[in-house]
Amino acid sequence: MHQLIAYFKFLLSSTNQYGVHSPFVYDYLTKCLYKKSKYRTGKTEKVLFKSISYFKCKTIWIAPANENLKQKIKKAFPFVEFNAPTYDLIYIGAPHLEEYLDIISNKTHNDAMILIDAIQKNKENMALWESYKQLEISRVTLDMFYCGVIFPRSEQVKEHFKIRI
């Protein structure tokens, strides 16, 4: 029941690319997320795979419990490395702020992307997502109901978007 109510609230407050005033986010939506996909996966995995392709990610960190996802990525993107001093993309299967805070804060760079699954699955995940948004590194955040994205982009003002995908 919680997810249904949360989804209706999300629909009332979210937008598409036309409600976005950031050129970076607009391009990400129109040239990446809203493009037709060749990937036959769930919503969050589509965001992940499309983003890897769009940003040409070379180094990716996947939370340890997602070995199956790591294999899928390696098959689709054989050039991707999973061990590096910094990462272009970090994927966290569900919000665990305390566990992954060090990786998010110290293993990313300005143009990195942090993708977090299931941000609105329950009240605890929603509270953790709110905590992620408050981090110093979180300059641009996108709530897509199924998942959330954080971009460190220090050159941009702190903004939060709710986007329908």
Score class of each variant (00 low, 15 high):
residue 86 T to A: 11
residue 70 K to V: 04
residue 132 Y to F: 14
residue 37 S to W: 10
residue 55 F to S: 13
residue 34 Y to W: 11
residue 126 M to K: 13
residue 93 G to S: 13
residue 141 T to E: 10
residue 158 K to V: 10
residue 112 A to T: 08
residue 68 N to V: 09
residue 25 V to E: 01
residue 72 K to P: 10
residue 59 T to Y: 01
residue 43 K to M: 00
residue 145 F to K: 01
residue 127 A to L: 10
residue 115 L to F: 06
residue 135 L to S: 12
residue 109 H to R: 08
residue 119 I to V: 13
residue 133 K to L: 01
residue 95 P to Y: 01
residue 161 F to L: 05
residue 147 C to Y: 12
residue 92 I to P: 04
residue 45 E to N: 12
residue 117 D to H: 07
residue 61 W to I: 15
residue 29 L to N: 03
residue 59 T to I: 01
residue 111 D to E: 12
residue 138 S to Q: 07
residue 144 M to E: 01
residue 12 L to R: 14
residue 69 L to M: 14
residue 3 Q to W: 03
residue 83 N to D: 15
residue 142 L to H: 00
residue 125 N to E: 09
residue 71 Q to D: 14
residue 97 L to K: 10
residue 114 I to P: 03
residue 96 H to E: 14
residue 66 N to D: 13
residue 84 A to M: 12
residue 139 R to S: 05
residue 105 S to E: 12
residue 146 Y to E: 04
residue 146 Y to G: 01
residue 41 T to M: 09
residue 2 H to W: 13
residue 126 M to I: 05
residue 122 N to L: 00
residue 140 V to K: 07
residue 146 Y to K: 06
residue 81 E to M: 03
residue 89 L to V: 10
residue 30 T to K: 15
residue 89 L to Q: 12
residue 24 F to H: 08
residue 13 S to P: 02
residue 145 F to V: 09
residue 66 N to T: 02
residue 147 C to S: 15
residue 47 V to N: 03
residue 58 K to L: 08
residue 106 N to D: 07
residue 90 I to R: 00
residue 141 T to Y: 07
residue 23 P to A: 04
residue 148 G to V: 02
residue 152 P to A: 07
residue 4 L to F: 10
residue 120 Q to N: 15
residue 131 S to F: 01
residue 137 I to M: 02
residue 110 N to D: 12
residue 154 S to T: 04
residue 74 K to T: 11
residue 123 K to E: 10
residue 36 K to E: 15
residue 1 M to R: 12
residue 121 K to P: 00
residue 146 Y to D: 08
residue 71 Q to G: 06
residue 153 R to Y: 08
residue 77 F to R: 09
residue 4 L to E: 09
residue 23 P to N: 06
residue 164 R to G: 05
residue 69 L to H: 15
residue 136 E to V: 06
residue 154 S to V: 09
residue 91 Y to M: 11
residue 67 E to V: 11
residue 127 A to Q: 15
residue 127 A to F: 08
residue 154 S to W: 03
residue 25 V to M: 06
residue 154 S to I: 07
residue 134 Q to V: 00
residue 45 E to P: 09
residue 7 Y to M: 14
residue 55 F to D: 05
residue 120 Q to V: 01
residue 163 I to T: 04
residue 136 E to T: 13
residue 77 F to W: 11
residue 7 Y to R: 14
residue 30 T to H: 05
residue 117 D to C: 00
residue 101 L to A: 10
residue 49 F to R: 00
residue 31 K to I: 00
residue 114 I to D: 12
residue 17 Q to E: 14
residue 6 A to R: 12
residue 77 F to N: 05
residue 18 Y to P: 03
residue 30 T to Q: 08
residue 21 H to P: 02
residue 36 K to S: 13
residue 59 T to Q: 12
residue 28 Y to Q: 13
residue 148 G to W: 00
residue 110 N to T: 03
residue 140 V to S: 01
residue 116 I to W: 04
residue 75 K to M: 15
residue 25 V to G: 03
residue 118 A to C: 14
residue 5 I to M: 07
residue 138 S to L: 01
residue 62 I to Y: 07
residue 121 K to F: 11
residue 60 I to H: 07
residue 163 I to Q: 13
residue 117 D to T: 02
residue 131 S to P: 02
residue 78 P to L: 06
residue 15 T to A: 05
residue 158 K to R: 15
residue 48 L to A: 05
residue 128 L to R: 14
residue 139 R to D: 01
residue 63 A to I: 02
residue 59 T to E: 05
residue 123 K to I: 15
residue 6 A to T: 04
